[in-house]
Design a protein around this nucleic acid. Structure first.
Lengths: 218, 218
DNA sequence: CCGGATCCTCGGTGATACTG
DNA sequence: CAGTATCACCGAGGATCCGG
């Protein structure tokens, strides 16, 4: 059995309520965003630090320590070659996904175009596909931006969205993050962007319309 | 159209991500708990203050101002008699319910028995019935504790949980909050508590088993 | 009494520098 | 690369006071 209250001595709400208890665990600044990034795959300390501009190293260290103590994440060693310690979600941490996705869904309405000072990691947008997917498809595709690669695996009963390439990818979308975002969530019909040359679609024939259908795009 | 970023100048994440944007609005301390309480019905300033021990008056005032500016709540006047200004959720605020309920569901696993210093408002527990209800029933019931009354209206397609009595209540559960909680969510079969005299069930015949069935209780 | 505003203190947050 | 140490600051918490 897990502990019923966060371990480290932070400020608690002292309310016998599921929501208050959840916020006792992950309600502090940056915590939920760290979990969001780990939802896309295990990450090293510096990966998290670089991926979360504004979060400083001392606070990241503190958050990771708390999350580990609380049993939401665990620090594991990646076997050689390239031995490194990475942080990944435990089952308890993974189960925060519905909470996280619900918040992402609510806040999505405010996203139009990123402002000058705003950071955009296309993985954050791709997570929303988990809310949109209606099941019943079989397809694996990759998304390539400048320096990052994500993939998504659509199966009849589920969808996975993770960082990195996929060994059996059938389709590849390449383009700037902002256009990838617009392709999936923008007001313009998704099929226009490749036509305009803003996004390059490569891969097996017939997979592209299937991808559009899987998320109800035109 | 609503504003795309919170109005008041607080600390923002500056990330082009729905979750980060949601947290820009409601990620600060106490904010989501205020919305939780308003989800159960409109409330006056002092209602909120009394219902949220630990929240101080200055901070409540600040939060309410921010929430109103952001368009999540609105301050309305209740007509006489007993004219008072109450705060209630706007549609935008109401749409936070899935997010809130998802968090409540995740944190619920940590609730066993309230500790000495922990506050328990049975309305918070009753909100979870929204997650448990499977549709297909028709029933209205009230929950009476010492000084608070809540009601729930089960309809074929939806469920409502609010504070106050209901004009057409068919069933009334009376007892201490901790036993009401245990009745719905405790490990012991729900039907035992009335048998032991810890909870009093009154109302129309046949409604009691229907209530148990509506939430998958034994 | 209701609905706040003001003052003060303390701890969490953020920025920078430093170390194994 | 993966953190720790130090410090400034601001927001949270607590108490008191104010206007209707």
């Amino acid at each position: 059995m897990f502990c019923k209250v966060p371990n480290s001595k932070r400020r608690l709400y002292h309310q016998f309520c599921g929501l208050a208890r959840a916020l006792d665990f992950v309600g502090e600044r940056w915590t939920l965003l760290i979990i969001r990034d780990l939802l896309l795959g295990p990450k090293r300390y510096s990966d998290l630090l670089n991926g979360l501009p504004g979060l400083t190293t001392n606070l990241l260290a503190k958050r990771l320590k708390e999350l580990e103590q609380d049993g939401l994440i665990e620090k594991t060693k990646v076997p050689p070659p390239n031995p490194a310690s990475v942080y990944q979600l435990t089952n308890l941490g993974l189960e925060l996904e519905p909470f996280l996705l619900a918040g992402l869904e609510w806040g999505h309405r405010f996203l139009t175009r990123p402002t000058e000072e705003e950071v955009l990691d296309i993985g954050w947008s791709l997570l929303r596909l988990k809310n949109l997917y209606k099941t019943g498809y079989q397809l694996t595709f990759e998304v390539h931006t400048e320096n990052k690669i994500y993939h998504s695996a659509l199966r009849p009963q589920q969808i996975a969205v993770r960082d990195g390439p996929h060994p059996d990818s059938e389709l590849r979308l390449t383009g700037p993050p902002v256009y990838i975002h617009e392709l999936f969530f923008g007001p313009t019909p998704a099929s226009e962007l490749p036509d305009q040359g803003l996004i390059v679609v490569e891969g097996k024939f017939g997979r592209w319309p299937r991808l559009l259908a899987a998320f109800g795009l035109s």
